[in-house]
Amino acid sequence: MTLFAAHVGAPRFDLIVLAVTLSGLVALLHGARFLAAFVFRRAEANSWPVVMALWDGALVSAALAFSASFGVLKSQIPTVNPFWADDLFTQMDTVLFFGKPWELSHKIIPSFVTPAIDFVYFLWLPMLLATILIVGMFAPEETKRRFFVSYLAAWSLLGLVIATAFSSVGPIFGDLVGGQSFLPANAPFAHAASAYLREGYVNRAANVGQGISAMPSMHVAMAWLYVLCFPKLRILTVPFFAFIAVGSVHLGWHYAIDGIVAVIGVAAIWSSSRRRSSEAERDNHRVAMDGHGVRAVHAFRITLNRLRSR
């Protein structure tokens, strides 16, 4: 979101408009699909196409609207809890990796690879929007339920609660907390995005994507959610996750510990969503069985009355 907003100059409610537009598109496509299924009498025809289309559209709209408002909420973090944890995370990274990971990565990774990492990191937002739309339209109900539960929980618990408790800026904005900034020279997207974020912080603006927060890395969190949610696509999701995880440190956006916490947090949320989904499935099955039981009793009574009438 940050990178996208930095390059298109998005006003505060642009993504809300996008959310409504995409949710409407979901509804229209669902309606067309179910209408075709009804006309051609295919097995996928459903008695409630409009309801299902509107429900899926509402899921997409809610997720995107929440994402649009997230940057505004994140911009208030230093007001609620001023940045304090950067020294702590720098020390933790130094102990874990025997040095500052963002400096070590540039000793290991050739400089000509940095623009590629920067570009993939920029693709994170288009990937997020596409994933929300595709899951909302085409994913099986179980996958859809777990994805959106995990998505909203991750942004709320990790992106707001933990981010506020451990308020930090990351190496790229080290100068804002009395340290030294770290930003590779050959990372144009990172330069544009950091300038946009810095402008918002200095002007105390609350625009889309202008909040600064390092712990935990929501880029890493969402990339890891893709790995967990789409096991059949791991040939694609794992390399994407690796690029995002490395890029979050290599470009100076995050401390390595930010990504570690993100992975652990999303894994816990995903595991919890499975238990909740299983409970919901059992409840649905119980309701269905109860319905069958009522129909069975009704059929028995009809049969008994017929026997008596004879």
Rank of each mutant, 00 (worst) to 15 (best):
M1E: 04
P11F: 07
V17G: 14
V20E: 02
T21W: 12
L22V: 11
S23L: 05
L25A: 14
L29E: 08
A36Y: 08
F40L: 13
A43I: 05
E44C: 03
L64N: 01
A65S: 15
A65I: 14
K74H: 09
P82N: 13
T90V: 05
M92L: 15
T94R: 13
T94S: 15
F97R: 03
F98I: 09
K100M: 06
P101F: 01
W102H: 12
E103M: 10
L104V: 15
L104C: 04
H106W: 01
I108S: 01
F112Q: 10
V120Y: 07
T131H: 00
T131I: 03
I134V: 11
G136E: 03
M137L: 15
M137H: 01
P140W: 07
W155V: 02
L158A: 15
S168Y: 00
G178T: 08
S194N: 08
A195D: 09
Y201K: 13
G211L: 14
M215V: 07
P216T: 12
M218K: 04
M222S: 08
V227F: 04
V227S: 04
C229S: 14
F230Y: 06
A242D: 02
A242G: 05
S248P: 00
I257T: 07
G259F: 07
A267M: 09
S273W: 04
R275M: 14
R275V: 11
R276I: 15
A280V: 10
R286I: 08
M289T: 12
G293E: 09
V297D: 02
V297G: 00
R301Q: 11
L304W: 04
L304Y: 06
R310H: 10
